[in-house]
C-alpha cells in the first residue's frame, strides 16, 4: 500500500509539487495523467529518491514505512521500482552483469540468497521469453545503442526480474510504436497480483488501452485535481486538460 500525504517538493527555489495526496492499495494500478509541466516526472523522482529534489512537506508511506528518509537503493530493496522515461546508458557494462548485480543487491537486502551466474541466466532467459525478447539483449551493454523501444523493453525486463511490490512507470509509452507498447503493457500486466501495485504516469490515454487502470488521477500544477475510474482517461482524451487547473 502506497500512501502519499500532502507531498510538496521543489527544485532549487521552484515549487513543483504543491500538496499531492494519493493512495494506491495493493493489487491496484493507478494512472497519473496530466499536461506537460504538471510535475509528473518530479513525482516519480521524489518517490524514488533522486538527489536535487527537495521535499518541503508531507509524507510518503509505503507498506507502513516512511520512505522519504531512505536512499534510492533502500527504496529498491523495499520493493519500489522506477521505470525510467529516458533509460540511462552504461558504456562497457554488460546487461547480464548489471541485472545480476542489481538482483543480488536487492536479494541480499531482503535477506534472500544470491544467485550464481547459472541460476541467474536461467531466470533471465525465462523472463526474456515471456517478454518476447532476444537473448542477445543480455550480452549488450546496458542501453548502449538500444533503440527507444529496446530501452523501454529493457526497463520492463529489469522490472520482471526484480519483482517489485510497487512499480512507477514514468512515461514508459513515450517514443514507443504500437508493437513495443503492447510488449511493455503485457510485461506490466503479467506482474498483476494482489501483492503488486503500480503508478502509471502518462501524458496520453493510449497506454491505458493496454494497461487498464483501477483509477485515474489528474495531476495539474502540482496537485491532484481530479480522480476517477478508467472512463476519466477517455474524457481527457476527448476534451484535453484545458480548464482542469482550477477544478
Amino acid at each position: 500500500m502506497l500512501e502519499i500525504k500532502n507531498l510538496s517538493a521543489r527544485i532549487g527555489d521552484k515549487d513543483i509539487l504543491r500538496g499531492v495526496t494519493l493512495s494506491v492499495p495493493d493489487g491496484e494500478i493507478h494512472a497519473i495523467m496530466g499536461p506537460n509541466g504538471a510535475g509528473k516526472s518530479t513525482l516519480s523522482y521524489v518517490l524514488s529518491g533522486r538527489e536535487g529534489y527537495e521535499v518541503t512537506g508531507g509524507e510518503v508511506i509505503y507498506n507502513g514505512q516512511d520512505i522519504l528518509a531512505l536512499t534510492p537503493e533502500a527504496r529498491a530493496a523495499a520493493g519500489m521500482f522506477l521505470a525510467f522515461q529516458y533509460p540511462v546508458e552504461l558504456p562497457g557494462v554488460g546487461n547480464a552483469n548489471f541485472l545480476r548485480t542489481a538482483l543480488n543487491a536487492v536479494r541480499r537486502a531482503r535477506g534472500e540468497a544470491e544467485l550464481d551466474a547459472v541460476a541467474f541466466l536461467k531466470l533471465a532467459r525465462a523472463a526474456l521469453k515471456n517478454l518476447s525478447m532476444q537473448d542477445d539483449m543480455l550480452k549488450r551493454n546496458v542501453n548502449v545503442g538500444f533503440s527507444g523501444g529496446e530501452k523501454k523493453r529493457n526497463e520492463v525486463l529489469q522490472m520482471a526480474l526484480l519483482q517489485p511490490g510497487l512499480a512507477i512507470l514514468d512515461e514508459t509509452d513515450s517514443g514507443l510504436d504500437i508493437d513495443a507498447l503492447k510488449i511493455v503493457a503485457e510485461g506490466v500486466n503479467a506482474l498483476r497480483s494482489p501483492a503488486f501495485s503500480a503508478l502509471v504516469i502518462t501524458h496520453y490515454q493510449r497506454l491505458l488501452d493496454y494497461i487498464v487502470p483501477d483509477k485515474v488521477h489528474v495531476l495539474a500544477a502540482g496537485r491532484i485535481v481530479r480522480s476517477g475510474g478508467p472512463e476519466l482517461a477517455l474524457e481527457l482524451e476527448a476534451h484535453g486538460y484545458a480548464g482542469l487547473e482550477v477544478a
Binding site: S48, E51, P72, E73, L90, A102, L162
Partner: peptide, 13 residues
C-alpha cells in the same frame, strides 16, 4: 549523476 541514480534505483549501493 543520472548513471549513479539509475544504478541505485535498481538496488546498487
Amino acid at each position: 549523476e543520472d548513471q549513479l541514480f539509475y544504478c541505485r534505483s535498481r538496488g546498487l549501493s
